[in-house]
Amino acid sequence: MAESDEQLAERLATAAGAILLNLRTRGDLVGKDLGKAGDAEANAMLCRELRAARPGDALLSEEEKDNPARCDRNRVWIVDPLDGTREYGEGRDDWAVHVALAVGGAATVGAVALPGLGVTLTSGAPAPLRPANAPLRMLVSRTRPAAEAVFVAERLGAELVAMGSAGAKAMAVVRGEADIYLHTGGQYEWDNCAPVAVAQAAGLHVSRADGSPLCYNRPNPYLPDLLICRTELAADVLRLAAEYSPA
């Protein structure tokens, strides 16, 4: 039986995670050098395997030179071989591997490997959502929490939870460890396509920070803001985000 897109995404995200763990375990590289090597090795495998398995599809990777011809294709694989390079280089667990397929501009298939935790979450096998946390928990960047997110959290009475990569934060909502991930600090399509596919398959709300749809395979892959949250919280989060204005 032919491997489905969901199975392919899960297999490759997991395999890339294994490459990254093995590289870190060797111990001969640390910090930025480790992150650079990990990006290169995981990317080489992902791109090689995707081109072999789906030769008719386009490919957009953070670590590959962009080919504008991808915009003429209906199906494009969007990958981030190492999301959270800093966390990976520091020996932390809050980093991820993203493998996604966008069809017609929509995040359709996704796999997010969390190798440090030994799990890969996919759009093909969503787990039931857990009950909301009390108090609510809202994810922010470890190094540069967005002012809008802090504003929204204060008004919702939500606890701020600092975490590394975008994939790790998004999957924390999927896994029920948090309830809201609002990001306004700038991202690219590879930062959120796979997490969005997994989150929406799990029944979560996904959108831009203003509530508009997330669209992929654009000529400019910059996609600066993102909201992933429980559906019952979306209206309040979007309203409060719109109310925020810098001092």
Rank of each mutant, 00 (worst) to 15 (best):
E159K: 15
V152G: 07
V161F: 05
G186Y: 12
G186Q: 09
G167P: 10
G164V: 00
L223W: 08
S212H: 15
A199V: 01
C215R: 13
Q187F: 15
L204S: 03
D225W: 02
Q200M: 01
A149G: 14
A170K: 00
A158G: 08
C215V: 14
A194D: 03
I180T: 05
L223V: 12
G185R: 06
V161E: 13
D179Y: 04
L156G: 09
S207N: 13
A199I: 05
R144I: 00
G157K: 08
H183L: 08
E154P: 07
A197P: 01
V206E: 12
Q187N: 11
Y216K: 08
N217L: 05
V198H: 03
S165W: 06
V152Q: 03
G157V: 02
S165L: 11
A197F: 06
P195D: 10
I180G: 05
R218Q: 14
R208C: 09
M171V: 02
G167Y: 11
G167L: 10
V161K: 09
C215A: 13
M163T: 09
K169F: 08
R218W: 03
P221R: 07
L223N: 12
G211K: 06
V150K: 14
N220W: 10
V198C: 00
E154Y: 04
H205C: 02
E159F: 05
L204Y: 02
Q187I: 02
A162L: 08
G186M: 04
C193W: 00
E189G: 03
A166N: 10
D210H: 15
V173G: 06
G203F: 14
A178L: 10
A199L: 04
V152H: 00
M171R: 05
Y216F: 15
F151M: 03
S165T: 07
E159T: 15
E189V: 04
A194M: 01
A201S: 03
A201H: 04
H205Y: 09
R155A: 03
A194E: 00
E148T: 12
Y188M: 13
P145S: 13
M171H: 02
V196M: 01
L204M: 04
L182W: 07
D210K: 04
A178H: 08
C193F: 01
R144D: 13
T143K: 07
E189L: 01
D210G: 11
C193Y: 02
L182A: 09
I180V: 15
L226W: 11
G203K: 04
L156P: 06
E148W: 01
A209L: 14
V198P: 00
L226C: 14
G176C: 11
E177Y: 10
A202L: 09
L156R: 00
A153Q: 02
P213Y: 14
A199Y: 04
A197T: 10
P195L: 02
A147Y: 13
E159C: 03
P219V: 07
L182G: 01
Y188R: 12
P224L: 13
D225N: 09
Q200L: 01
A146G: 12
V198L: 02
R144E: 15
L214M: 10
L156H: 02
A194C: 12
A146K: 10
L160P: 08
